[in-house]
Simulated scan of single mutants.
Amino acid sequence: MSRNKYVLLATLGSAALLLGAFGFQYLGGMAPCKLCLWQRWPHGAAIFVGLFVLFGGPRVLVWLGAAAVATTGAIGVYHAGVEWKWWPGPSSCTGGGMDLGALSGNDLLSMDAPSGLVMCDEIVWQLFGLSMAGWNAVICAVLLGLWVAAARRKV
């Protein structure tokens, strides 16, 4: 298979994952948490890099696409570990979500405070025991393989 076919498959894979995330959010009503949002940015970068390479960009950028999916996959592993309580997550979206002891009485009673904090350590959807973060990590391992295969191809 040619380098461009590998790049195309990897780019389409990131696009599919990103579209799936938006589908869960806007069609399924599942708001993303902070770590979910962090996983989206590298997919966007991988799509941008893939398109650039497909339209004649330098071969060395293929490694940048690989780095992007490796990054989102690593965030997915971290996020899945937070969901499974293997390690702590960001204090702003795990456990209690906020340090209530640091808030004043006015802050606690304020109607202007943001509502609907989505917790990073709660699994809102899973398939075969893996959450969305877990599936992101698994699929990113495959996408990383495609990017590396593309980088190692001469043409």
Rank of each mutant, 00 (worst) to 15 (best):
D99A: 09
L108Y: 00
G116L: 07
W86C: 10
V60A: 14
H79I: 14
T94M: 10
G97E: 05
P88L: 07
G97T: 09
D112M: 03
A66T: 08
C93I: 11
M119W: 10
P114K: 08
A102P: 15
N106E: 12
V60G: 14
D107W: 03
L103M: 09
D107R: 01
L61W: 15
L117P: 02
A67F: 13
I123K: 03
T71A: 04
I75E: 10
I75Y: 03
I123M: 15
V82G: 01
V62M: 05
W84P: 01
G89Y: 04
A67C: 04
G97N: 06
A67Q: 07
E122F: 12
V60L: 14
S92A: 06
L64K: 03
V62N: 01
A68E: 00
G76M: 07
V62K: 03
W84T: 13
W84V: 02
V82I: 11
W84A: 01
P114L: 08
W87M: 09
L108G: 07
G65E: 14
G89D: 08
A113N: 12
V77R: 02
L100V: 12
R59C: 00
C120Y: 07
G89A: 06
V69D: 04
W63M: 14
M119G: 08
G73H: 13
V82M: 12
A80I: 07
D107C: 04
N106P: 00
P114H: 09
G76K: 06
H79E: 13
T71V: 03
L117E: 15
A67H: 10
G73C: 00
W84R: 05
D121G: 09
G76D: 06
G101V: 02
T71F: 04
D107F: 07
Y78E: 02
I123G: 05
V69S: 09
W87Y: 07
D112N: 06
D112K: 01
L103K: 02
I75Q: 01
L109H: 13
L109Q: 12
V77G: 01
M98L: 13
T94Y: 08
W87S: 14
G81H: 03
D99I: 15
G105W: 06
G95K: 03
L109G: 07
S92P: 06
T94S: 02
L109A: 11
S110R: 02
V60Y: 14
G65F: 08
I75N: 03
S110T: 02
C93K: 12
L100N: 10
A80C: 10
A102H: 08
D99W: 15
D107Q: 06
G95W: 00
G81I: 11
G105M: 11
P88C: 08
L117W: 13
L64Y: 08
L100Y: 12
P90C: 01
P58K: 12
W87P: 05
G101T: 10
S110W: 02
A70E: 00
E83Y: 00
S92Y: 05
G89M: 09
Y78P: 00
Y78I: 04
G73L: 05
V118K: 02
G105K: 15
W87Q: 07
L103A: 07
M119C: 10
V69F: 08
V82C: 07
G96H: 07
A66Y: 09
Y78D: 01
V77I: 14
V118G: 00
